[in-house]
Amino acid sequence: MKDNELDAVYTQLCRTMTELGPDKTALFLARFALLAIQRIDDPAAALRIIGDAAEDMAG
């Protein structure tokens, strides 16, 4: 994915979360993650992405 495509996708993700509102954001992100994991179709890759996303977030 090119930088401009990544930016467009991320922008749409943010817009969708804004439209849904804060009370639905967590559920939306959970659904998005499950759908993305299905599309990735590679357990090892999905686990690496989960680790990458959590990196430096533990408080």
Score class of each variant (00 low, 15 high):
Arg31Tyr: 06
Ala8His: 03
Tyr10Ile: 09
Asp23Lys: 13
Gly51Ala: 03
Thr11Tyr: 11
Thr16His: 13
Arg31Ile: 08
Arg48Tyr: 01
Leu6His: 01
Leu47Thr: 06
Gly21Gln: 10
Asp7Leu: 05
Lys2Ala: 11
Ile49Ala: 12
Ala8Arg: 08
Ala36Ile: 02
Ala30Glu: 07
Lys2Glu: 11
Glu55Phe: 13
Arg48Gln: 06
Asp42Ser: 09
Ile37Trp: 07
Arg31Ser: 08
Tyr10Ser: 08
Glu55Ser: 14
Ile37Arg: 13
Ile49Asp: 07
Asp41Val: 00
Asp7Ser: 04
Ala8Cys: 03
Ile50Met: 10
Leu20Arg: 15
Leu29Gln: 14
Lys2Arg: 10
Ala54Ile: 07
Gly21His: 10
Asp52Cys: 08
Lys2Trp: 06
Val9Ile: 15
Glu5Tyr: 03
Ala45Phe: 01
Asp56Val: 03
Arg48Asp: 08
Lys2Tyr: 05
Asp23Ala: 13
Leu20Met: 14
Arg39Ile: 09
Gly51Gln: 09
Gln12Gly: 03
Met57Phe: 02
Gly59Tyr: 12
Gln38Met: 08
Asp41Tyr: 01
Leu20Lys: 15
Asp52Ile: 10
Asp23Thr: 11
Phe32Ile: 00
Cys14Asp: 13
Thr11Glu: 15
Ala58Ile: 14
Asp56Arg: 11
Glu19Asp: 15
Leu27Tyr: 08
Ile37Phe: 10
Arg15Met: 09
Asp52Leu: 15
Leu47His: 04
Phe28Lys: 01
Leu27Met: 12
Gly59Asp: 15
Asp3Pro: 07
Glu5Ala: 02
Phe32Gln: 05
Leu27Pro: 00
Leu35Gly: 05
Leu20Ile: 11
Thr18Met: 05
Arg39Leu: 12
Gly21Asp: 06
Cys14Leu: 15
Asp41Asn: 14
Ala8Met: 06
Ala30Asp: 05
Pro43Cys: 01
Thr25Cys: 07
Ala26Trp: 02
Leu47Phe: 03
Lys24Trp: 10
Arg39Lys: 15
Ile50Cys: 13
Ala30Trp: 02
Glu5Met: 04
Asn4Cys: 01
Tyr10Glu: 10
Arg31Val: 06
Thr18Pro: 00
Ala36Val: 04
Pro22Phe: 07
Arg39His: 10
Ile40Tyr: 02
Arg31Lys: 13
Arg39Thr: 11
Asp56Glu: 10
Ala8Trp: 01
Ala33Glu: 08
Glu5Phe: 02
Ala26Phe: 07
Ile49Arg: 03
Gln12Tyr: 12
Ala44Asp: 14
Leu34Pro: 00
Asp41Leu: 00
Lys2Asp: 14
Ile40Asp: 00
Ala36Asp: 00
Ala46Glu: 02
Glu55Gln: 11
Pro22Asn: 13
Ala30Phe: 04
Ile49Gln: 04
Gly21Glu: 09
Ala45Val: 12
